[in-house]
Computed example of a mutant assay.
Amino acid sequence: MRTNDELAHVEEHPTEPVRPRMTRTRLGIFVATLTVYVAIVVGVLTTSWPVRFDWQVMLFRPYKQWPEIHTFLDYFVVLGQRGPTAVAVAAWLGWCTYRQKTLRPLLVLGTSLLLLNATVGAAKIGMGRLGPHYATSIGSNEMFAGGDIFPSGHTANAVVTWGVLAYLATTPRSRRVASVSAALLALGVGMTTVYLGTHWISDVTLGWSAGLLVLLSLPWFEAPMAVAEAWLLGIWHRLRERTALVPAPVAPIALGGPRTPVDDELPAREPVGAGSRAGARVPDGRPHLSPRPHTTRSERTPVTPTGSRRPPHSDRAPRTSPVLPATGRGRTVGG
């Protein structure tokens, strides 16, 4: 049984998540998927059977065959759009990052989207295929005509974005559920684009292959992601240490010496403003004197008192030159 100190240490330093490795099985699937990818591209470039099948489906016009589901599929296809899906998955992985105390979920998502944009975007621009709605001649492959639909970005994005959740699953059961859900979503999004007439069948199959290649290549990027995570956490810890080293503001010291237990029972003093009078009383009964320059006793100007030192009395007349009866000599009061 663990002690409290051990439990605190475990909570402060969570267990390092298991990072998938490029196994022989995964590598075999990657090579097979890459072979399918190349075969589809070659088939479209040579205007072989993939192009003929594309035109057959396009001329069938599925959106006219089943118009009652058109509205629903217009909303469903958003599940493959890059912006909304990336925001939704990033919000969930941000919560996982907070719970697991690791940046790996967000780094995996960022790496996968970067690979997706680089590979699929380059293929789209490089092959420049036009979509079914912009086709110029029946039976042509519509390649290198300034388009950007080959492979299907919606399909590849659905494979990668939802597949990342399966890739990051921590238990076998959750991994199976997430994998099946991601596959069904990617299948549905791809076929929806064909139904709406925005993509050829070959666009969709190439999008599935492109997205799967990105997911299968993620284990090769686990080591760079670990380095990036350590670097980012180091920056974060240094910022926290700098913030902790900033000195706290020091409270002003009250005049009159250290407080005693009796002073603690008295009400707190109110601050004396610049316009207060010298010698004003503060709540604890002691006078507050305004500051003035201190002089030594030898530098002070002597003051000679004038007048009588006796207090005034109503029955006594003031005398200025009294005469002593014994000596007859006058003496000034106060001499």
Rank of each mutant, 00 (worst) to 15 (best):
N117Q: 12
N141C: 08
S152C: 00
H154W: 12
A122C: 14
Q100L: 13
L106M: 10
L107R: 04
G147R: 15
T111Y: 02
K101N: 15
D148Y: 13
L109T: 08
S112D: 11
F144Y: 14
T102I: 07
T155Q: 11
V160K: 14
A158R: 14
A122I: 14
I149L: 00
A118H: 02
N117P: 02
M127E: 07
N157C: 15
T136D: 02
K124Y: 08
T102W: 10
A145V: 05
N157L: 02
H133Q: 12
K101F: 09
D148A: 14
R129V: 02
I125S: 10
G110I: 06
H154D: 14
A118V: 11
A158Q: 15
K101D: 14
T155H: 01
K101I: 13
G121T: 09
G121I: 12
K124V: 05
H133V: 06
G139N: 02
A118N: 05
M143C: 07
L116G: 13
T136E: 07
K124P: 08
S140M: 09
A156P: 12
T136L: 03
A156V: 10
M143P: 11
F144R: 08
H133W: 02
L130N: 11
A123S: 10
R129K: 01
A156W: 13
V160S: 15
L114D: 04
P105G: 07
Q100A: 14
I125C: 01
P132D: 03
M127C: 00
L114W: 09
G153P: 09
P105Y: 02
A122M: 15
S140N: 01
I125V: 15
Q100T: 13
I138W: 00
Y134S: 12
M143W: 08
P151M: 05
L116F: 06
L109F: 13
G126H: 08
G126D: 09
L115P: 01
A118D: 10
F150H: 07
P132A: 03
R129E: 05
S140D: 10
G147L: 03
Q100M: 10
L109A: 08
I149H: 00
A123N: 13
V159W: 03
A145S: 08
S137A: 13
G147W: 11
L115N: 01
K124T: 10
T155M: 04
S140P: 03
M143S: 08
P151L: 07
E142N: 03
T111A: 09
T136H: 03
L107C: 07
I149A: 06
G139P: 02
